[in-house]
Design a protein around this nucleic acid. Structure first.
Lengths: 358, 358
DNA sequence: GTGAAAGCGCTAACAA
DNA sequence: TTGTTAGCGCTTTCAC
């Protein structure tokens, strides 16, 4: 027989009813030592394991939490997921993961699928909390949900959702101040999935506002279109085009590291010819020379916090308190941020490489 | 009413039977334009969505594939997962992910859970394919499964499993030859989760054998116990203890990068005082100075291949052919591997840390 | 073209 | 202590 044994098979073999099997194997209710051992023996002999489908259908709970992040390629989300999973497991829940690949369509589809699978809760980073269709679905179904790294807007689908997030604007402010302190004025904001990430947008907007406040030039938006191998070339071309810039704020550390490499390949010195600041605080940033200046966040705490929030709601308990926005990040000054070299700070061009004249 | 609408509610509202609703909403069987629109309207009005639990229980298929990897912190596995997910989605399957954290107990538990959830197939990297309990469970249940990065042993639980993997021994061979070509003899093998990873073990064994064959000294096994922040310190201490070593083969790129950093902090030059070779070929290895020498693998291809293999079995088709072992990796020579400096090549210890004289 | 009913594997209420 | 039974939401015969 190829069919997996069911509780019925066990009951038959043990010579008892299925309810008895359920009771014994679940350790609930009472049973005589007699039948206990008979059931145990039968289950063992058959290699019986419960089928969660039946159980979940009956109990109206899957003990499962869905998790959706844009990508696992970004170690930040990998950490969020790992931390959330650890927390969920501790509470006897299983995490089901899906990636949206920064694609709104996939995001909606993934949320729909997880909802159909009757996940008990959801931990989600959406592309844009103001417009996400998926969030509408979650709200309609009233499934407990916590956002991660998204800021819930005052209206739109994300409104009213719990969230563990980073104060992107405050962080961008700190970065702008870092640049100002070193005497930079002409800066750029480098982003990869800009327009598909509300985090990126918030960081950019915050940076623009802070630069204005500090009397610096309006930052240039440096948007990278694709990836896959060509990233360094694209970055190189972009840097070559914007020689006037003395400082770059990258929307994540990976991009920042790539920019450092691209600059080096162009014969530029970091930070003398170009200062670079990242975002996230991934550990690799500490392994390069010079160290990466960056905004350090705590993705583990975010993942854990979000999981606890959902878990608490499932258990009918008070959710954990969230950190003060000002403590959701810290600015780490590293070697990649320094004063611009004399020739560059006043908008001139010290490092002329091919011929250029801005 | 808080309860989610079921097919029954839709039927009631549309004034028809549940079978009709099922047919209309699934687009199967025939139905009059009349009832069609009535059902559609009712479903729309109620915001009805199917509950996969009932469907799966009935159809004996969840259109779900389980995936278990040791950790997402290693970008290699993150890529495997992303690729496998993309492939599964293309075929209308959803990936359910779990991480074992390099813990055998968690690994078994995760496999048990996924099996109980009735995943249709499994894509798995286990700690050790020779001893994994989880693989026994999978085999007992006859769930289609493909290993990734594990080598299926000739006996033990993993025996007979399909696998997409890297020729670890061959790769270790190439690394040893790389060291030999540069004149190294005293080397070390650096590993983090050694003993919890059969990949690591195979790489080490292959390296030992190759060094012997090439007339080099027996490599020192440099095992790191914990992580979390203290990694660089531990590495530093370890490097300081083994000054005689001129080359290190790290079991993954992250460790290799960390070792480069630790060496630099000790005032050592890479590669003059210490050559370093990694494993995996993550992109960050190209962003440091000097470039990381490493064994480049193709985790995306592994994930995709494993998914295709499982999917093919589910569809009753021929699985895709796997690559020739010799083409599962390529050795990339980078700046982190060079000839040892004169003072060090003959086993002495020229570089006595702080004060140094080469 | 349509609906009644059986049944997927399980739990829980109720009877015995 | 134990077995019978209803029913979770769905698909799928099989009559009508």
């Amino acid at each position: 027989m190829l069919r997996r044994p069911t509780i019925k098979d066990v009951a038959q073999r043990a010579g008892c009813g299925i309810a008895t099997v359920s009771r014994v194997l679940n350790g609930q209710g009472s049973s005589s030592e007699q039948t206990r051992s008979k059931v145990l023996a039968a289950a063992e002999a058959l290699g019986f394991e419960f089928n969660d489908l039946g159980r979940s259908l009956q109990s109206n709970s899957t003990r499962t939490i869905g998790c959706i992040v844009p990508s696992l390629a970004n170690p930040v989300f990998a950490e969020v997921v790992q931390a959330a999973q650890a927390e969920a497991n501790r509470a006897g829940y299983q995490l089901i993961l899906a990636c949206s690949d920064y694609d709104g369509g996939l995001e909606t589809k993934a949320i729909r699928t997880l909802l159909a699978k009757q996940v008990d809760g959801l931990i989600v980073t959406v592309g844009d909390a103001r417009t996400s269709e998926g969030l509408e679905l979650i709200r309609a179904k009233r499934t407990p949900c916590c956002l991660v790294y998204n800021t819930p807007p005052d209206n739109g689908p994300g409104d009213g959702f719990a969230a563990w997030t980073v104060d992107n604007r405050g962080a961008a402010d700190a970065v702008a101040e870092g640049f100002a302190r070193q005497g930079h004025s002409c800066t750029g904001f480098l982003a990869l999935e800009f327009g598909r990430s509300d985090r990126s947008r918030e960081r950019y907007e915050g940076f623009v506002a802070a630069c204005a406040r500090l009397g610096m030039a309006h930052p240039v938006l440096l948007e990278i279109e694709e990836q896959e191998g060509r990233l360094l070339q694209l970055l190189g071309a972009m840097l070559a085009e914007h020689r006037g810039i003395t400082g770059i704020f990258a929307s994540n550390d990976y991009l920042a590291l790539a920019a450092m490499k691209a600059a080096r390949d162009l014969g530029m010195q970091v930070p003398a010819d170009l200062s670079i600041v990242g975002f996230d605080g991934i550990s690799t940033g500490l392994m390069v020379e010079p160290n990466l200046s960056t905004v350090v966040t705590d993705p583990k705490a975010m993942g854990r916090g979000a999981a606890q929030t959902v878990l608490a709601r499932l258990a009918g308990l008070e959710p954990p308190g969230r950190p003060d926005p000002a403590h959701t990040f810290s600015f780490r000054q590293g070697g990649s941020l320094g004063p611009p070299s004399a020739g560059k700070s006043d908008g001139g061009e010290a490092a002329t490489s091919p011929p250029s004249n801005q």
